[in-house]
């Protein structure tokens, strides 16, 4: 019976083709360093899921942000686990994306025809850092408040347009409720949307070109 259901679906959705092209692709000789991209993708999904769950209780307002996180950590069943995964997953994602990038660089996988994959990867790395930067403010504790004060000041040190950039980032000249709100918006809508779109193109390019062989001694 299930076989018939599957065949009916497969005829219309092309599940077998999807499986073959996405998960059963031919690979060059296996190497654990080649799994870092998949690890980064997994972390992105994990961060997305735990992040969505955190918004059930989190409030992006200076009055309640700290208290709501306190409540997630102490008042909600498994709140500590969901936030813990999101917290450590964020750090891990930056590390994994960076090592992934390093591996691509060292094995020269960015060369023709994969230059665009590399360029988009740079974008992905920067947006990942942006996710880390915006997410850091959201607990609204002393550490995050002053880290963002300093971080936006660094952005403000750009010659000529620095002051303008600082005001855009903070939503005014001071760190305020507006800063928290726009960091929240960037953290849960804009940057994830950018990440998801870039990941889509990145994956398409990888499937189209296949993975590069490890360079041999002669290369």
């Amino acid at each position: 019976m299930w076989k018939n259901v599957y065949e009916w679906l497969d005829e219309r959705l092309g599940l077998n083709d999807l499986y073959k092209n996405l998960l059963d692709r031919p690979e060059p000789k296996g190497n654990w360093w080649n799994t870092l991209g998949s690890a980064a993708l997994f972390l992105f999904i994990l961060q997305g899921v735990t992040g969505i769950f955190l918004t059930v209780y989190y409030t992006p307002s200076p009055d309640h942000a700290y208290d709501s996180i306190n409540y997630i950590m102490n008042g909600v069943a498994f709140g500590w686990l969901i936030r813990g995964i999101h917290h450590w997953g964020a750090t891990l994602m930056v590390v994994v994306v960076f090592i992934h990038m390093l591996r691509v660089f060292v094995t020269a996988s960015f060369k023709y025809p994969r230059e665009l994959t590399w360029l988009i990867g740079i974008g992905l790395f920067l947006v990942t850092l942006g996710m880390g930067f915006t997410g850091y403010l959201l607990p609204w504790n002393q550490q995050s408040y002053w880290a963002t004060t300093v971080g936006t000041q660094i952005a403000g040190s750009v010659p000529f347009i620095g002051d303008f950039i600082l005001k855009v980032l903070r939503g005014g000249s001071d760190l305020s409720a507006l800063t928290l709100q726009r960091f929240f918006s960037a953290h849960i809508w804009m940057l994830p949307a950018a990440l998801a779109g870039l990941i889509g193109v990145h994956l398409y390019l990888i499937i189209k070109h296949g993975e590069s062989n490890f360079p041999s001694k002669e290369d």
Binding site: V49, F53, V56, V76, A77, F78, G79, L81, I82
Partner: peptide
């Protein structure tokens, strides 16, 4: 745990 987290209140 995620389901418990949602239903907790």
């Amino acid at each position: 745990p995620a389901i418990a987290y949602l239903l907790d209140p």
